[in-house]
Design a protein around this nucleic acid. Structure first.
Lengths: 135, 135
DNA sequence: CTAGATGCAAACGGTTTGCAACTAT
DNA sequence: ATAGTTGCAAACCGTTTGCATCTAG
């Protein structure tokens, strides 16, 4: 199976420094567990400046440790990620978000693009509803 | 086939008034043709106040005459829509966006949710790449 | 006639930036 | 030693709001 280096390792490997504030933010992300706004992350890591939180979230997105997700109403949240290509199931009840991959779905998406003569670079798919626990 | 009332009719049917500014905005939307930002729409309808443009875009979204779309980089644009459930193929080259529906894909998405015990309310799917003309 | 719509300008919330001080490597 | 990182505050940008005026129905 694919190795999923921990966020700190990812940072180092991407050439970024592993600093105090960044560790603090990574801990806060783990602590939050679920999807979070930058605002919430700031609250969870009060010792770190706002600008640094924004900069770090962007950095973590680039390294794949965190992924951006767009809720049904268009608002933006982030969440700890295993990285790689995946989609989301967003629960409108508890707010939790499941990552999932579905090769069959991806295949069909590629087929759809092909038929339309569309040269596919990427795609995003988000499911909205209630998770097993909340349904 | 499904009747797709023109935007003006939609407005009237939804109980909203058909006013001068709203007509101006609808014309501007048609004039722009492709996806647009509110900023661009303001420029295309300079006689209408900014706030009204925002309010009207929201209104048009609600009536389904216009749909919101999220680009790969997370930025938001709007575009004239036929309404109803559909997905998008976004061309990164020319910026054009094709609406499409794909029953087979929708079926698979529902199946995916079902297997996961997820009670699906809705979903969004956006394809990114280059359209036939640009590829 | 009157509820709904408009324009303006001010307020807003989230995000970015310039810069001088700091620190991981 | 030095390029990368941080904190702060100010700037920014897209969007919303309060309010007095106007107008479609």
């Amino acid at each position: 199976m694919t190795t999923t280096p921990d966020p700190t390792t990812r940072l180092a490997e991407s050439g970024a420094r592993v600093t105090g504030p960044r560790r603090t933010i990574l801990d806060a992300v783990d602590g939050l567990g679920g999807p979070f706004t930058v605002e919430e992350l700031c609250a969870a890591a009060p010792s770190v400046g706002r600008a640094t939180v924004f900069r770090t979230v962007k950095l973590l997105q680039e390294t794949g440790a965190v992924c951006r997700l767009v809720l049904e109403d268009g608002s933006v949240r982030y969440q700890r990620s295993e990285g790689g290509h995946h989609h989301h199931r967003v629960c409108s009840e508890c707010g939790r978000v499941q990552e999932f991959a579905d090769a069959e779905l991806d295949r069909l998406i590629h087929a759809n693009a092909e038929v339309a003569g569309f040269e596919l670079d990427g795609h995003s798919l988000e499911l909205y509803g209630r998770c097993r626990r909340c349904a």
